[in-house]
């Protein structure tokens, strides 16, 4: 009896130990990564580092153009991906009949899109956006090299395409959580289908959509592969003013500083600093989105 109990106790403790050590392992990895970045990067951070352009062959100076370019491209990406993603989710969840072949096709396409490696999106962006659409636009406008070259617009659209499944899934998740009874209530009051979606369903889905936006911002900021061929520049002596210009961005800048530099001793601290800034920026963007989300949530609860 006691032997059995002991054995059970040991087994139980072993399992707690196993799951607990998995958690510890993850915490340790995170600490090591963050620690390395913070220790290696904090010395580079200064007001000048954040507000000035790189100088002396990118071995000195700041990273402001990369910050600027990242914000520019992420904003464009959101403008493209949120409306399309939300509209697709609304169609799939509110309008489409579940058994309908087109619905199944779209759903399958969305799932497959989510599984495509980001480098493939980059190459697709190069072939489709730049050569096919951009090149086509240039040819029909009778000019050369305005749209048919890498730029912020195409890079943002490529990022948008890559992140489309995330927005769709997050929105659909949010729509699914809204009770059918509320839709029925709206329809029974003589609202049209669209009115019930616009005034009852979508307002409640906003927190869920914002969750998708948070994820998409982080991923968009972190991915380099989709923008390498579609718009990111190694170095630019000026800030882009139009979406048709190339841009510098933090993720790519870090890649350049660590792998493409002839003077690695000078550039690694810059890369570390840039990484720290990238992490801080995504972190604070996430915080902002989370604050907006909890505000809309409590406003919904208060019923405004």
């Amino acid at each position: 009896m006691t032997n059995k109990m002991n054995l059970r106790n040991i087994k139980d403790k072993l399992k707690i130990g196993l799951t607990g050590s998995a958690v510890l392992l993850i915490l340790a990895i995170l600490t090591i990564i963050l620690g390395t970045v913070i220790i290696g990067g904090y010395k580079s951070i200064s007001w000048e580092f954040l507000t000035q352009a790189p100088t002396e062959g990118m071995t000195k100076g700041g990273i402001f153009p990369a910050i600027f370019g990242m914000v520019f491209s992420l904003l464009l990406m959101l403008i493209a991906v949120v409306p399309v993603g939300v509209a697709t989710a609304v169609y799939l969840h509110e309008y489409a009949q579940p058994g309908f072949i087109l619905t199944k096709l779209i759903r399958g396409a969305v799932n497959n899109l989510a599984g495509v490696p980001s480098i493939v999106f980059g190459l697709f962006g190069l072939g489709f956006f730049i050569q096919f659409i951009g090149g086509g636009l240039d040819r029909s406008l009778g000019q050369a090299g305005l749209f048919g070259q890498p730029c912020i617009l195409w890079a943002s659209l490529t990022l948008a395409l890559m992140n489309l499944p995330m927005i769709i899934v997050a929105t659909e998740e949010a729509l699914r959580a809204i009770p059918q009874a509320e839709r029925a209530g709206a329809l029974a009051l003589g609202a049209t289908k669209w009115q019930s979606i616009r005034h009852v369903v979508l307002p409640q889905a906003i927190p869920g959509i914002l969750t998708g936006v948070v994820l998409v911002i982080s991923r968009g900021a972190g991915e380099v592969a989709p923008i390498m061929f579609t718009g990111a520049a190694y170095y630019l002596p000026y800030l882009p003013k139009l979406p048709t210009e190339q841009f510098m961005t933090l993720g790519y800048h870090i890649f350049v500083m660590t792998t493409q530099s002839p003077d690695i001793d000078a550039t690694v601290p810059i890369a570390m600093g840039a990484t720290l800034v990238l992490l801080a920026l995504t972190f604070s963007l996430n915080i902002i989105a989370i604050i907006i989300r909890s505000r809309t949530r409590s406003q919904l609860r208060k019923g405004r």
Partner: peptide
Amino acid sequence: FQRPNPFPKSIFENVAFGVRM
């Protein structure tokens, strides 16, 4: 309906909903 299904809006907006639509 069987279960009360007010919208997560104010009492005023709930009652005004049908008219507004």
